[in-house]
């Protein structure tokens, strides 16, 4: 008798030994994206004007900066999982695949860190004139 849970049984399976992890993460970040991007669009509609001062005051609020940081992190996680599948399916040469996968990781991590830094700096130090 196997007394493990359902999730315990599938973890570590598959040729990559990651089981359903990639698949599940892609779905979880997708649901997160729906929620966070819905917030983003609604929040954009409630900004009184789109001049720089109004946008900077909007973005510096904790209740905007925090979901914005979450949105950047969640979207780029989803980007990493999604573009990884594109590379696996369409890049057949081993060397090119390795290079593409490396570039994808650089792109995703650099972009997410840049975006999060921009928002955090504005929230902590206020907008420059």
């Amino acid at each position: 008798m196997d007394s493990r849970t359902n999730i315990g049984r599938v973890r570590g399976l598959g040729s990559a030994k990651h089981g359903g992890e990639h698949w599940l993460k892609q779905r979880l970040t997708a649901i997160g994206n729906v929620l966070l991007v819905t917030w983003f669009v609604l929040s954009l509609f409630m900004i009184p004007s789109f001049d720089h001062g109004a946008l900077a005051r909007w973005l510096a609020q904790p209740l905007v900066a925090v979901p914005m940081i979450l949105m950047i992190a969640n979207i780029f996680s989803h980007v990493k999982l999604g573009l990884q599948v594109l590379i696996e399916d369409y890049v057949h040469d081993d060397g090119l695949k390795f290079a593409a996968m490396t570039l994808l990781n650089f792109y995703v991590i650099a972009s997410a860190v840049f975006g999060i830094f921009v928002v955090a700096k504005l929230a902590f130090t206020g907008a420059p004139a």
């Binding site: 900077a56 780029f76 980007v79 972009s111 975006g115 921009v118 928002v119 504005l122 420059p128 004139a129």
Partner: peptide, 20 residues
Amino acid sequence: LATAGMMTLLWWLSAIGGGT
């Protein structure tokens, strides 16, 4: 979305952070 969409979004955010 992953390329053009996100790069434009990051440019927009950093432009807001960069000042008038």
